[in-house]
Design a protein around this nucleic acid. Structure first.
Lengths: 110, 110
DNA sequence: TAATTACGTAACAAAAAAGTTACATATAAA
DNA sequence: TTTATATGTAACTTTTTTGTTACGTAATTA
C-alpha cells in the first residue's frame, strides 16, 4: 500500500480492491459503508480507496463529512486498451501456425 | 514471486512481466533471449515466466534444451472478461446522472 | 457547545514479492 | 566423452505491500 500507486495493473492486483470495485459498481458507497463489508480495518480500506482513486478506477464525491466512491471509467479503459493491443497477435499467431502446418505436415495425396 | 501465482491480475502487476509479454507477442523467445533484455538475472526472469505461464498468459514450447515462450490467449481473455463486466455500469451511471439532473437542476422556463 | 461520527495519516509490524548466488540437470556440440 | 549451453530450483536477503493501532480534524447531532 506504501505510497501512492498510480499503476492501474498494480491497483487491480489486490483481490480486496477488486471486490471494492464490484461493490462500488452496484451503487456509490461511503468509505465506512465499504469497510463494513471487509474484515480489514477502516484505515486499511481507506488506503485501498486511495490507490484505486489514484489509478483512475474511482472518483470521490464529498458530501459533508462523508466521501462517496463512484466508479471512474478511465482506469478500466486503460487496462482494456492495453489488453486490446495484444488482440492483433492472436491472428498473427494463427497465421504462423497455418504456414507451419502447410510447410511441415504432409497432406495425403488423393 | 514466492510460490505459484495463478491470479491473472497479480501476474500483470509487475511492469517487467508486462514487458515480457510485449516481447513475446512480437515473436516467440527462449528464456535466455528474454533475460538478455533485462537487468535482472536469468533465474529471476525464469520465475517471472513461470508466473505468467501459471496465470495463463504464455505457453512453453520445448525444443531440445531450449524453452520458447509463446503468447497464450486465455489469461488475456480472463482479464478482458472481468473488465467487460463493468461496462454495463457506465450506462447505468449515466442514466442515474440523467435522472439526478432531471430532478435537481432547474430547467429555465421559456 | 459538547459529543459523536466519518474520515485521513503517521508509525510501526507482519507478510508477500522480487531479486541474488550457488548449485543441479539435461541436451547439444567439440 | 568431455565441454559448453539452457535451463530449473533451493536458500537467502532486500524491498514492497498490507495491515494495525493511535491520534488528529472537520462536520453532525444532541
Amino acid at each position: 500500500m506504501s505510497i501512492e500507486t498510480v499503476d492501474a495493473f498494480q491497483a487491480l492486483a489486490d483481490p480486496g480492491r477488486r471486490e471494492i470495485l464490484m461493490m462500488v459498481a452496484k451503487e456509490k458507497r461511503s468509505i465506512n459503508a465499504i469497510a463494513e463489508n471487509f474484515d480489514i480495518s477502516r484505515p486499511a480500506v481507506s488506503k485501498h480507496i486511495k490507490i484505486l482513486q489514484n489509478a483512475g478506477f474511482i472518483n470521490i464525491e464529498e458530501k459533508g463529512r462523508e466521501r462517496y466512491c463512484v466508479l471512474n471509467q478511465s482506469g478500466f479503459s486503460e487496462v482494456q486498451q492495453w489488453i486490446s493491443t495484444f488482440e492483433q497477435y492472436w491472428t498473427a499467431q494463427f497465421r504462423s501456425l497455418e504456414s507451419y502446418l502447410a510447410a511441415n505436415v504432409p497432406v495425403p495425396k488423393k
